[in-house]
Design a protein around this nucleic acid. Structure first.
Length: 561
RNA sequence: UGCCGGAUCGUCUAAUGGUAGGACAGCGGUUUUUGGUGCCGCACGUCUAGGUUCGAAUCCUAGUCCGGCAGCCA
């Protein structure tokens, strides 16, 4: 057995030292999404980290829905998140929990804090509370209700719970320090009044705990050892510890790490909503969005997403991974697993003049050169075939190896063909290329040993399937979507191009989620919109294209600036 | 300008006082019935200034820059 080197990231080291010191004798983490939105690849990193640490130390991961705000949370999101986390491969067994299931216990601890003089009922309005909180540089001032008696607070809290006050009339606040340089410690709210229907608790409650009050308690109840969260909670850690200490209960350790962001995209719920509502994308699972659902629809594998997380690593720096990196992860996975097929996205007709009219045959094509067990298939061949328009040039530029007048190239798994002429329309555009083939080269090798410089993919015309192919590109033109201030101004107008393509018959029964490599083009995944006879493919990612780079560089040289 | 955090190739990340390494991107070569894959190579980095030390990315001091925090959101 190959012993895997232990991780050296700072969280693994902290966990190791906690285990060594005896602070904890086991490892238990959690992933605590709020069920108010779809998961995105940033969440995938959080899952990866929490699950990865648990796994590395032989511990467990809990999935906990942090449903403390009845105004925003819905069962629909619970279902979607559950599905995404499972799909990503994080194992949580039957440990699916809801913060709302702890409301009764939390209320009891709240009364305990009140009895200890650590919390009080405050009548300040939202505006009054804001102005008395002070600013980043000036201390706040004490609430006039800060010194109510324990009995009065207890009575008021009870009446809040009973529903005697309207929304916003009162809050329960922790009595800490209105002059603290850490604003989170300036008597933070523990409960607010919300006469709202909760997706799980129904109308049982009309006071709801805040994140700060509830989160550590939830961790404590579940016996979490390491509560791994993102950097923006760092300022909340003193509060996290304070609540646990005052409640006098088991204390997990919160450790923060920085979240993932990617170039050429955005990663916030607010923006997803805006993009969907303004019609820039078709929904939360639009293949251009970095949501887990969108990525999956695009054709991303869970392996690729986890590999990106692994490559990203765990740290506290502000990071922005390049989109290349994500794309490369997908290519690495799909190169070894995706069956190969041939498809022509921008068709140009080739007529093989010396191929007998009415004749047909099949040629043998390898399904996956990286995987012998994938076997081979028969592909129809005939007198008329489609090739990619960009694979023919009437006046080939330097280093262009493909088809041109007089040139011989190989049709993959087919024959050598030589261009002997073209047919043009009235505007001079080439609409047909005429070739001859060498019957001796069947399968793609010449018995006389002569070589060709290019191999083209192709599709036999009479048996080709017509399909819709959606060509996706970066959603944003600029690496940083915010560049220039207005992110919508940086949207890529060509992030989706739809084309009609000819594909070989072997994809006829592809169903949603099936991924192929279309040779020389990229990886394509059958979309859920696909129907028998009306196939739809999404381009998941292109192949690396060295020629495109060469051609692009040449073009740049011709038109500098 | 209050508090907290961070700064290592273009990007992400290692090096825990002892040769600054890896991945992706870039460049070059090689193999190839995918201008794909694979393989080989090249180039590129310790925020700045002082200090401690035989030796500093690492320790100390002073700066600089970046991020977060003033929801009854999480």
């Amino acid at each position: 057995m190959i012993s895997e080197a232990q991780s050296t990231n700072f969280i693994a080291e902290a966990v190791r030292s906690d285990l060594a010191s005896g602070r904890f004798d086991r490892v238990h983490t959690r992933f605590p999404p709020e069920p108010n939105a779809y998961l995105h690849i940033g969440h995938a990193l959080a899952i990866h980290v929490n699950y990865g640490i648990a796994k590395e130390f032989g511990g467990l991961l809990n999935l906990r829905f942090d449903d403390t705000n009845p105004l925003k949370e819905e069962q629909e999101y619970v279902d979607a998140i559950l599905h995404d986390v499972e799909w990503l491969g994080a194992e949580f067994g039957d440990r699916v929990f809801f913060t709302s299931d702890y409301f009764a216990q939390m209320y009891e601890w709240a009364t305990q804090l009140v009895r200890q003089g650590d919390a009080y009922v405050c009548d300040l309005s939202q505006e009054e509370m804001r102005s008395s909180r002070g600013t980043l540089t000036a201390p706040g001032t004490n609430s006039p209700y800060r010194d109510r008696s324990v009995e009065e607070n207890l009575g008021l809290l009870e009446r809040m719970k009973l529903g005697e006050f309207p929304d916003g009339a009162k809050t329960l606040r922790a009595r800490i320090d209105m002059a603290s340089p850490n604003i989170n410690l300036r008597d933070p709210v523990m409960y607010r009044i919300r006469h709202a229907h909760h997706h799980r608790q129904g109308d049982d409650w009309c006071i709801y705990p805040s994140y700060d009050w509830s989160h550590g308690l939830g961790d404590s109840i579940e016996g979490i050892t390491h509560s791994l969260c993102s950097m923006e909670y760092e300022d909340h850690r003193p509060l996290y510890d304070w609540f646990l200490e005052r409640a006098g209960i088991y204390r997990p350790r919160q450790i923060e790490f920085s979240r993932l962001s990617l170039t050429h995209t955005v990663m916030s719920k607010r923006r997803f909503v805006e993009l969907v509502e303004r019609g820039h994308v078709a929904g939360y699972d639009d293949p251009r969005l970095p949501t887990v659902a969108g990525l999956r629809r695009r054709g991303y594998t869970a392996w690729a997403i986890n590999e990106l997380c692994r490559r990203t690593g765990i740290s506290k720096t502000n990071k922005s991974m390049e989109m290349f990196q994500l794309e490369d992860c997908l290519r690495e996975d799909l190169n070894r697993s995706a069956p190969r097929r041939m498809a022509v996205l921008d068709p140009l007709k080739v007529v093989i003049q010396n191929y007998p009219e009415g004749a047909s045959e099949t040629v043998t094509a390898v399904n996956n050169p990286e995987d012998e067990s994938a076997g081979s298939r028969q592909v129809p061949f005939g007198r008329e075939i489609w090739i990619e328009r960009e694979d023919f040039r009437e006046e080939p530029p330097p280093k262009f190896f493909r088809l041109a007048p007089g040139r011989e190239v190989r049709l993959r798994y087919g024959y050598f063909i030589r261009c002997v002429g073209t047919v043009k329309d009235s505007e001079g555009n080439v609409v047909e290329v005429h070739c001859t083939y060498d019957p001796e080269t069947q399968g793609g090798n010449a018995p006389d040993g002569r070589k060709v410089k290019a191999t083209l993919h192709w599709v036999e015309a009479s048996t080709a399937l017509l399909a819709q192919v959606r060509l996706y590109d970066h959603l944003f033109l600029t690496p940083n979507a915010d560049e220039g201030g207005d992110y919508l101004a940086n949207l890529n107008p060509d992030s989706l191009r739809t084309v009609r393509a000819w594909i070989e018959p072997a994809v006829a029964d592809a169903t949603a989620g099936c991924t192929f490599q279309f040779e020389r083009l990229g990886y394509f995944t059958c979309d859920k919109d696909s129907r028998p006879g009306a196939i739809v493919f999404n381009r998941s990612v292109t192949l690396r294209d060295t020629w495109a780079k060469v051609a692009c560089a040449a073009a740049d040289r011709e038109t500098p600036g």
